[in-house]
Structures are given as structure tokens and as C-alpha cells.
């Protein structure tokens, strides 16, 4: 009798909650990360496991991680956001411009820059969300289009010349600043990642993100506003791209018009390596963090070992394909 058949053995209670956060694939990836760290540490104990090097890696990962928080929500809904690097650059330009207009080198000016960066990101996020959720144009096309539009607009505004007139206090305070020895960029990123992870794991907004990606039809029948939720998710990705643009401005002291061309692909690769399904519905923030950090560790490790750093791209590509293959296996089980 169907209803009497016991279900497959499921881990219970607390361990299950833990596994919900971690996910089995990202747990395996955490192991991969540990092996990599151990390997590089053993090969170059004098260089790799140094605090300075670790903080260096954390800083390298920080801007990508901010982008990846929004990207994780987007991919969980079954969508994609290719525009994040364009929006990042555009927001950086708007923030730099706004701070130039405001003048001065003080906290209010920095705040104006942040607000403008977030508004610029939100505007692109709203465009993405509207075209995807309401006009029902495929996310791949919409965000490919807005990537070009945002990057092109940034080049138009600046006439192709980087704005390097960035307040010193932004560069010194946030870009290269430290708080108790920890780079401010890393702290800001950690706060965003943790907040994003908690919202995803514990709130209704997070649950609807999974639900919309798992079955939009089930959501519609449960009276969930699917289009409204998608709009919010792309808006979130846009705002976080704006924040990332602001952080990039702080870190590099310039708008880096041509410095982020592959950020979108690196972020998507990291999210997918971290176990979030490109088809939506499953994955999580912890996996994303590990998936973004692994390529950073690989690159750093190859440099430290004196190997050509180009090996990193080869390795990351292979890991990406493997991650998607495992996801396909999992989905075959799901859709049986």
C-alpha cells in the first residue's frame, strides 16, 4: 500500500538542516578545497599558508563573491545573469561620477557614491527583471543584451577613458583598508555573503527562490507571484552588482572599464561548481562560496608553485564540466 511504504532513509533533524545548507556536492567540494590547500601548503609551506597570502586570496575572491550572492539567487530560480560585469562597471562609473560632482573627500561623499552605485545596479536589475519576468524573454538573451548595453553606456559616459578621480578615503579606507588586520573588502563581502546565505536558507524569500526554480507552475497554483519574485531576484542581483562596482572602485581606485570582462563567466562557473543547478531549484550559498574560492586558490597556488597560471583556466574548465555532469546525474534521478 503506497501510503504505508516507508520513505527512503532520510537523515533527520539537525544533521538534515546542516546538509540542507551544505548540500552533498558542496561537501565534496569542501574536501577538494581542503586537499588543494593542503597540497599547496605542503609544496610551499613558506609561501602559500601565510596569513598575508590567505588575505590576498580572500581579497581576490571578494568582489566575485558579492556578484555570486546575487547570481546564486538568479540561478536557483532557473535563470542566468550575464550582465553582472557590465552592471558592475556601469555602477562604478556612475558612483565615480556622482562623487566627482559631489566633490569633497568625506563620508557623505562616499555614501553618495554607494547610493548611486546601488541605484544604478537596481535600475539594470529592474530592466532585466521586467524583461524576463513580465515580457517573458529568455534570461540568457535579456542579460546578454543588458551586459552590452550597460558596458556600452559606461564607455559612452566616460568616452572610453577610465575615471581615476576617486576619493582617497574610499581607496584607503575601504579598498586597501584593514580592520583588526582583516581587509575591509573581505569584511564587507563576508557580511553580504552571510546575510545572503541566511535569507536564502531561512526566509520565505529564500524558499520561494527555490520553489520558483523547482516548479514555477506549482508556485502559480499555490498563488505565489512568480513574476514578482523573479523581478525581486534580478533586482537583488543588480543591486549587488552595483555594490561590487563600488568595491571595485575602492580597490582599484579607477573605474576599470576593461577589467571585468570575464567576471560574469567566473561567477557563473563558481556558482555551478558549488553545486547550484543551472536548471534551478537546488544548490545554496555555501556551495557558491567554495565554488568561487577554489579557482582563486588554484590560481594562487599555481603562481606560488611557479607553474604557468594559465593552468588555472584549464583546471577550472574541467571542474566546471564535471560539476554540471554530476548535476545532470542528480536530475536524472529527480525526473525519473
Amino acid at each position: 500500500m503506497t501510503s504505508q511504504v516507508p520513505t527512503e532513509v532520510m537523515p533527520d533533524g539537525g544533521t538534515r538542516r546542516l546538509s540542507a545548507i551544505l548540500g552533498s556536492q558542496s561537501l565534496a567540494l569542501l574536501l577538494v578545497l581542503f586537499v588543494l590547500v593542503a597540497f599547496f601548503s605542503l609544496m610551499r609551506p613558506d609561501a602559500f599558508p601565510r596569513i598575508a597570502n590567505i588575505l590576498n586570496m580572500a581579497t581576490d575572491a571578494s568582489i566575485l563573491l558579492v556578484l555570486a550572492v546575487g547570481g546564486t539567487y538568479v540561478i536557483l530560480t532557473g535563470g542566468i545573469d550575464l550582465s553582472i560585469n557590465g552592471v558592475l562597471v556601469f555602477s562604478g562609473v556612475i558612483a565615480a561620477q556622482a562623487m566627482v560632482w559631489t566633490g569633497g573627500d568625506n563620508p557623505p561623499t562616499l555614501l553618495v557614491g554607494l547610493v548611486f552605485a546601488m541605484l544604478a545596479g537596481a535600475a539594470w536589475g529592474a530592466v532585466n527583471g521586467f524583461l524576463i519576468a513580465k515580457a517573458r524573454i529568455p534570461a540568457l538573451i535579456v542579460t546578454l543584451g543588458t551586459m552590452g548595453m550597460s558596458l556600452g553606456s559606461a564607455l559612452l559616459i566616460t568616452r572610453g577613458i577610465d575615471i581615476s578621480d576617486v576619493p582617497d578615503s574610499l581607496v584607503v579606507g575601504i579598498g586597501s583598508g584593514r580592520l583588526m588586520g582583516v581587509p575591509v573588502l573581505v569584511i564587507v563581502t563576508a557580511v553580504i555573503v552571510i546575510a545572503g546565505g541566511l535569507v536564502l536558507a531561512y526566509t520565505r524569500f529564500g524558499r520561494y527562490t527555490y520553489a520558483v526554480g523547482s516548479s514555477p507552475e506549482a508556485c502559480r497554483r499555490a498563488s505565489i507571484n512568480v513574476a514578482g519574485h523573479l523581478l525581486k531576484v534580478y533586482l537583488l542581483a543588480g543591486v549587488l552588482s552595483g555594490v561590487a562596482g563600488y568595491l571595485s572602485l575602492a580597490r582599484f581606485a579607477t573605474t576599470t572599464l576593461s577589467g571585468h570582462t570575464t567576471d560574469n563567466l567566473q561567477v557563473i562557473a563558481g556558482i555551478v561548481i558549488g553545486g547550484t543547478s543551472l536548471f534551478g531549484g537546488s544548490g545554496g550559498m555555501f556551495g557558491t562560496v567554495v565554488g568561487i574560492i577554489i579557482p582563486v586558490v588554484l590560481l594562487n597556488g599555481f603562481v606560488v608553485l611557479g607553474l604557468p597560471p594559465f593552468w588555472q583556466q584549464v583546471a577550472v574548465g574541467a571542474v566546471l564540466i564535471g560539476a554540471v555532469y554530476f548535476d545532470q546525474l542528480r536530475r536524472r534521478l529527480r525526473d525519473r
Binding site: Y210, A211, G213, S214, S215, E217, A222, G281, R334, D335
Partner: peptide, 11 residues
């Protein structure tokens, strides 16, 4: 209860 169930399989 719909024919295609309307459940979210990942939840």
C-alpha cells in the same frame, strides 16, 4: 489536486 500534482520536486 491537479493531474500533474503541482509539487515543487526540490522542496
Amino acid at each position: 489536486v491537479y493531474q500533474d500534482l503541482a509539487l515543487a520536486p526540490d522542496l
